[in-house]
Design a protein around this nucleic acid. Sequence first.
DNA 1: AAGTGGTCTAGACCACTAT
DNA 2: TAGTGGTCTAGACCACTTT
Lengths: 256, 256
Amino acid sequence: MEYNSNIDRKSFKPAYIQLVNILRSQIDSGKFRPGGRLPSESQLCKSYNVSPMTVRRAINILLQEGVVSTTQGRGTFVKAIELHSVKFGSRELQDIFSGNIDTKVKLLEVKIIKANADIALKLNIKPDTRVILIRRLIMKDMEPVFYHQEYLIYNPTHPTVESEMGVTALYGLFTGRGEASLKRGEISIKPAILSETEAHLLLVDTSLPSFRLEHIFFDFDNRPISWGYFLCRSDKISFNTRVGSGETSDIILENQ
Amino acid sequence: MEYNSNIDRKSFKPAYIQLVNILRSQIDSGKFRPGGRLPSESQLCKSYNVSPMTVRRAINILLQEGVVSTTQGRGTFVKAIELHSVKFGSRELQDIFSGNIDTKVKLLEVKIIKANADIALKLNIKPDTRVILIRRLIMKDMEPVFYHQEYLIYNPTHPTVESEMGVTALYGLFTGRGEASLKRGEISIKPAILSETEAHLLLVDTSLPSFRLEHIFFDFDNRPISWGYFLCRSDKISFNTRVGSGETSDIILENQ
DNA sequence: AAGTGGTCTAGACCACTAT
DNA sequence: TAGTGGTCTAGACCACTTT
């Protein structure tokens, strides 16, 4: 939040960030209502004594945040809140996998099995090909939070396999210190009802609904490497988002 | 995707977008692996005959996408895929609420009730204050997808109330043509198990798990205006994301 | 014609990292 | 010291919308 409405050139905050904060708090205060027009870019240049590129940069940020919309030749307008393209994040997921020290991974089982039709389809291999099954329990504060089950392509010459089997390898994926051989992944969330054995592992009742976080990863040849899913206790995790002009002011600086 | 590795000044695509696509496809191809360093900005200026600001802009986009990370004085590096801060979106949600013509809202009930402790807490009012209860069914292709239940502050002088009661007002929220009096909202996703009556309304069995999409909206005085939730059939909706260097090339241009 | 957003230049200066 | 990312300038030119 900017308390004064001028740009402080001595501040450690860049001018464009200060301008973003000024404009956002003005929108937030109701000075510019949804549908209303912001001052033109050239006006902003004069008002705050900054160059066009700096104004442009500030407005681009508000644009990306979905706070304003621009039309060439018309102006910059405050957007009404809209829900159809919201993105959800999870504070708890971030907490658990941010290298937090009280997060433990308990390896339940590692074995080589023959792929059934379903696994074969997902991993794009022939049925009955050998794959590695890993079952893990992720604990936070001594309590189970996730049950994780994963099928890996079995390839003795492939370096991924060995490192993935390590219980700590899971961290890497979350914290970015993971495999350089993984190119991309796809993850989806669905709600799930736990089976008796799954509920037992997570120390909950089957009446507690859960998230099923399914994932698949590919190498640089676009071949599937692993497929699996997390089952998450719904009392330990949720996905959230904010829309409209919230007080997100300082997050931007942290990201840069 | 860029097929040649030079910037076409006659193209309708801006130079910085072309550069983003070139760099991304080079990362995608494995030319720059996770952990590896990209050419320096000044090198990129020379290679592609663009100004520093244009290179900067391109790299900023890759930075925002999480594809690369930068360190002042060291360089720009390809990031390994990381999961802890992924954001999930829903294609189905987008489809249903993008002004699609075959989406219908069926109003089940509108009545004034006295707020119980739970509702009073959420809406920051005294218990037994009168609130409006709205119950809706959102249909797609003649099939129910969402059950929606919402509690609105009852205030005859407030313009929000009347327009919200209209069955079509729901669209506005999703498409951005909604209330200009709403400042911000918070939305969360949890898994849920349907009650008998809820399952009956959605024409499914209680054994089908569902999403519960809870929302609360505030006006420009930061007062809660409405609180409620959607129950979503899990066979009709999912939340997804991609990590790593996927083929997201052209989406960027569409957003701009 | 005047005003708007959108792209781009060709430098400048600074802070930081490596050697 | 040399190279790196990061910010910023003071204009230019273009495409578009409004009057």
